[in-house]
């Protein structure tokens, strides 16, 4: 005997499933569009090996903590363009998008310089 349960079910249940699915999809889209809340912090952590935890250098390399946002953006873009001399930063800066550089600069600008 064929299973007709789907045909005999209460229509409200179908409605429930449809609405539930729709809400999940909407939520999924909303989530996908929510910016990664820790993105700037996480990218900035990649700089800490050489520039110190939270950008507070132990010496030898410049501190990034508390640096004016526009200064850091300008320097990184000059490194990226090859117009600012460097030993390694002209090579590393090319690994970051302009958006990532903006995120990094805003994050370091907000860190206490100590």
């Amino acid at each position: 005997m064929p299973d007709n349960s789907l045909l005999t079910e209460d229509p409200l249940r179908h409605f429930t499933v449809v609405i539930g699915t729709a809400l999940a999809v909407v939520a999924g889209i909303a989530y996908a569009q929510t910016p990664d809340p820790n993105l700037a912090r996480n990218i900035a952590a990649g700089c800490a090996n050489c520039h110190g935890t939270n950008g507070v250098s132990q010496g030898g390399n410049s501190s990034l903590a508390g640096m004016a946002r526009q200064d850091l953006v300008a320097k990184m873009k000059e490194y990226k363009a090859g117009t600012r001399p460097a030993t390694i930063m002209h090579q590393l800066a090319k690994g970051y998008s302009d958006e990532q550089i903006e995120l990094l600069a805003a994050w370091f600008a907000a860190q206490p310089a100590k």
């Binding site: 539930g20 809400l23 939520a27 989530y31």
Partner: peptide, 9 residues
């Protein structure tokens, strides 16, 4: 179902 969807949002 509504609550579950709401929770996701």
């Amino acid at each position: 179902a509504l609550c579950a969807g709401g929770a996701l949002v």
